[in-house]
Nucleic acid binder design. Structure first.
Lengths: 201, 201
DNA sequence: GTCTATACTCGGATAGAC
DNA sequence: GTCTATCCGAGTATAGAC
């Protein structure tokens, strides 16, 4: 109910929270209105309908989950450094938006038509560039022989999975919220080492 | 509409498919009825309501996603062999039920109360056992020093992530359905090697 | 711009005939 | 056991006053 930000911004933040938590199908306009501290009718005044509101939230989520990591992947860095930076950057990014990956993956799964817009030409090329860099390192015998596509998927998966599987991981390891936080912070180091060792760097 | 299996079984299969695809909130009783080739009213005759039907599907999903892998983790095997078997078994298991992990993780995220039942004492102990085995191997200097909990999460994540992130991975790597299948089959080997190398086995 | 009241649709659930 | 018809609550969206 903060009077600071504009109504529109408050709606958007509330909508983000609710969509992230419940997904499109589970989200209720009423709950969004409540969290924004305004009336249901206002939602339709600013954003015509649920779809439009969702569209905005999803577009933002894309940046939150793809933004910084792409810069690192596209940067001109030697492989070992790039790997380390990628892991650190990506985990930091995900800590800032812990619920976004599960949300995004869920919605992409239900709307295959969105996938092309989500992973556009540019994004695809960036990842292909990383794969090529790995292949090059392999050719020069700087790393163990290894299929580059798998390394790319492993890199992303090792960073993202704990956030998508959070409840299960917390239960298995017996971690409370702050225990999980700490675990994630450790991963910046352990995942980097894991990958470096796997590649023989 | 196969006349073979009983109506009850057909309903359950249809319900599984729809719940897996759409999640609880997105699933429609009408669609389940259609796929089962029967009337909506029949759903309520066999399973009292949507919740009860979901409960059954979810319980089965738990076994589909936890079953075989737990046997391997609990088995009395040397670490390198156990890791290899775990990866192979788990990926085979997930190929048989590709949509289940995303479904389960999504629903657990929305119903934190279910988590305890999902990861019960027994499951927790099995994973702790694996962690202990890794810690032992570390103590005996059979592997590189490494936090066991992270290895456990990495093992599971490397197997599960491709299925949860499937649409994104297909788009990034430019794979069609059978290309993805092949990629997954490759992973049984590449992930095993990745982990072995990471641990210095 | 913000509210209240209300229209309308969708979907889960039940009644009751066969 | 299986169907048709129908009820009813929930949830999105709009009308209209202030």
């Amino acid at each position: 109910m903060e009077k600071e930000r504009s109504t529109e911004a408050r709606i958007f933040e509330a909508a983000s929270a609710v969509f992230h938590e419940k997904g499109y199908a589970g989200a209720r306009m009423q709950e969004i209105a409540d969290r924004a501290g305004i009336n249901k009718a206002m939602l339709h005044y600013y954003y015509r309908n649920k779809d439009k509101l969702f569209e905005g939230v999803f577009r933002t989520a894309r940046l939150q989950v793809l933004g910084p990591i792409l810069d690192v992947i596209g940067a001109d860095l030697p492989l070992p450094v790039k790997m380390e930076r990628a892991v650190h950057t990506y985990i930091d990014q995900l800590v800032a938006h812990p619920e976004v990956p599960a949300f995004v993956l869920q919605e992409l799964r239900r709307h295959p038509d969105r996938v092309r817009r989500f992973i556009d030409e540019e994004v695809q090329l960036l990842f292909q560039g990383l794969a090529r860099q790995i292949r090059e390192a392999d050719r020069r015998a700087e790393i163990r022989p290894v299929p580059p596509e798998h390394v790319v998927v492993n890199l992303i998966g090792l960073c993202v999975f704990p956030f998508v599987g959070r409840p299960v991981i917390q239960a298995v390891l017996g971690l409370d919220e702050e225990g999980f936080e700490a675990f994630i912070q450790e991963r910046k180091q352990t995942v980097t080492t894991f990958i470096h060792n796997a590649l023989g760097l």
